[in-house]
Design a binder for these strands. Sequence first.
DNA 1: GTTCTTGCAAATGTTTTGCAGCCCG
DNA 2: CGGGCTGCAAAACATTTGCAAGAAC
Lengths: 132, 132
Amino acid sequence: MTMVRNTRQRQAVVQALRETHTHPDAAWIHGQVRATLPSISLGTVYRTLDALVRDGVVMTIERAGQATRYDYKHEGHGHHHVVCRTCGAIYDIPAEAVPMPASGLPQGFQVQDVRLEYHGVCTDCTRAEKRG
Amino acid sequence: MTMVRNTRQRQAVVQALRETHTHPDAAWIHGQVRATLPSISLGTVYRTLDALVRDGVVMTIERAGQATRYDYKHEGHGHHHVVCRTCGAIYDIPAEAVPMPASGLPQGFQVQDVRLEYHGVCTDCTRAEKRG
DNA sequence: GTTCTTGCAAATGTTTTGCAGCCCG
DNA sequence: CGGGCTGCAAAACATTTGCAAGAAC
């Protein structure tokens, strides 16, 4: 029987995620965690984040060619994400009405995560585009 | 002034996307398009897909470490996506109620694309997991 | 003690990019 | 003709993985 161990590394990663609201990526988290655990490897950070995602504790914002951004699911603060295609900035929108899994899901599909994302261009980047 | 050219490569990529409902990735599209344009490069396919996404003609399903999947936006067939974390299968759900950009968007943010995705595990993969 | 986890480093795979030549408009 | 497009090949990166040593329980 498998069992999940409560290692120092895991604690540190969770703590780093809880303490920020910046939707950090794995490298940033690695940097933070190094402050208390100088020898932790980036690979371990990735493996830990993966476990946290599978456990449903953390969610991700994923973009091709860009580092995945991680977001700790604070209780009672459901929200959606606004993503700037140009600079990668991520904003939160409070989840007024969380869209429940519609009927029409494939037979027996186990939903673990509902993501609502608004992709576009933020004000700053729009301005920059106009300037050419 | 920039201008978008209607090249043979672009036509072929659009056609390949229109003809399938399988949410293909760039490599698959490249293979298809080679049938009529044997010398087209994968780089061009990527550049073309990028342009189509920016034009709002095509949308993407992006997963870290996985090839991006592309989806032609057929008119009058708005839908959302169900994504299996394990095998990567993608299913469509008809967009009964498309979630409109909620109030609370950042000042001046230009929304280009609204994505609603249900991530989880499909029936087959759930079965496989149980077997161990 | 046994089993899961870590660190390290190498490998994998996707996407991007520089550049010279080509082609659309 | 001129400026965007293309093909090619070489990066650039994010993420994954194999393995021996270390840490949980």
